[in-house]
C-alpha cells in the first residue's frame, strides 16, 4: 500500500461515488491504514452531513399557492388592459374621424375645408373655401367670385357655403345661372377682365368658357 496521501478531490469523489471501482477500492484501502487521510475523510463526511441535515430542518412557512394565484391574476388583468390601450386609442381616433367627416370637417376627397370661417372677411372666407376644396378661382369682381371645382366636391363646397350663408349659384355648361338675389336667369360673360383678346387669349378664353368634364363652376356672391 502506497503512503501517498489522498487529495481532497479524491475524498470528495469517494463520498459522492464518483470514482471508478478500482480507484474506490484503492481509496478505501488507503483510508483504513492511513490515520491522516481517515481523519480528513471523517471531517469531510461530517461537514457534508451537517449540510444535509439542513434538508430536514423544520421551517414554518405560509402557503404560497393562494397568494401566487391572486398576484398572477391581477397582473394578467393589468397586462390585458395595457394590451387593449392601443386598440381603445385607435377606436377613439376612428370614431372622432368619422364624426369630423360627417359634420363636414373633411370633404369627400379628404381635403380640409374650413368649416368655421368666422373672423375672416367675406372675400377671404370665400377664397379660402375655394382653395381648401381643391378648387381654383377664375374671376374676382367687387360683387362675386367665380370658382371651378371637382364635381365630386360640389356637395361639400355647397354645404360649406350654405353653412356660412354665402349666396352662390352653379353655372351650367351654356354659361347661364340663376341669380339667387334676383331669381332671374343671367348670362355669364366668360371674359378676362376688360383687356383686348389676343390670339393666345382667344384660345384661353375658349378654354375658359368650356367647362371641362368632371368640373363644375360656381359663382359665389359677396
Amino acid at each position: 500500500m502506497t503512503l501517498k496521501h489522498l487529495n481532497f478531490d479524491e475524498l470528495s469523489d469517494l463520498i459522492d461515488n464518483e470514482l471508478s471501482e478500482q480507484q474506490k477500492d484503492y481509496c478505501l484501502a488507503h483510508i483504513t491504514v492511513c490515520k491522516i487521510c481517515c481523519k480528513e475523510y471523517e471531517s469531510l463526511l461530517k461537514c457534508i452531513s451537517l449540510l444535509s441535515s439542513l434538508k430536514n430542518e423544520c421551517i414554518a412557512i405560509p402557503d404560497f399557492s393562494e397568494r401566487t394565484l391572486t398576484i398572477c391574476r391581477s397582473r394578467e388583468k393589468k397586462r390585458l388592459f395595457l394590451k387593449a390601450v392601443p386598440a381603445i386609442a385607435a377606436s377613439v381616433i376612428i370614431i372622432a374621424g368619422a364624426g369630423f367627416i360627417r359634420t363636414g370637417f373633411f370633404n369627400e376627397s379628404g381635403s380640409y375645408v374650413a368649416a368655421n370661417l368666422s373672423g375672416h372677411n367675406e372675400t377671404q372666407r370665400i377664397i379660402e373655401s375655394v382653395g381648401n376644396s381643391k378648387g381654383r378661382i377664375l374671376k374676382i369682381t367687387h360683387s362675386f367670385i367665380d370658382g371651378e371645382f371637382d364635381k365630386n366636391s360640389l356637395s361639400a363646397i355647397e354645404r360649406i357655403l350654405h353653412k356660412n350663408n354665402i349666396k352662390h349659384a352653379v353655372i351650367v355648361n351654356s354659361g347661364m345661372l340663376v341669380n339667387p338675389s334676383t331669381g332671374k336667369m343671367e348670362d355669364v360673360n366668360f371674359t378676362y377682365g376688360n383687356g383686348s383678346v389676343s390670339g393666345n387669349d382667344i384660345y384661353k378664353n375658349q378654354n375658359y368658357a368650356t367647362i371641362e368634364n368632371g368640373k363644375v363652376r360656381i359663382r359665389i356672391f359677396k
Partner: peptide, 27 residues
C-alpha cells in the same frame, strides 16, 4: 386551469423556500 398551479406551488414551496433561505439566511 390556473387553479391547478396551486398543486405545483404546494409541492415545491418547501424546497424553493429552503434553498432561498440558506442563500440569504433571512426568513
Amino acid at each position: 386551469d390556473k387553479e391547478a398551479f396551486s398543486q405545483i406551488v404546494k409541492k415545491y414551496q418547501n424546497m424553493v423556500f429552503k434553498y432561498v433561505y440558506y442563500q440569504f439566511n433571512n426568513y
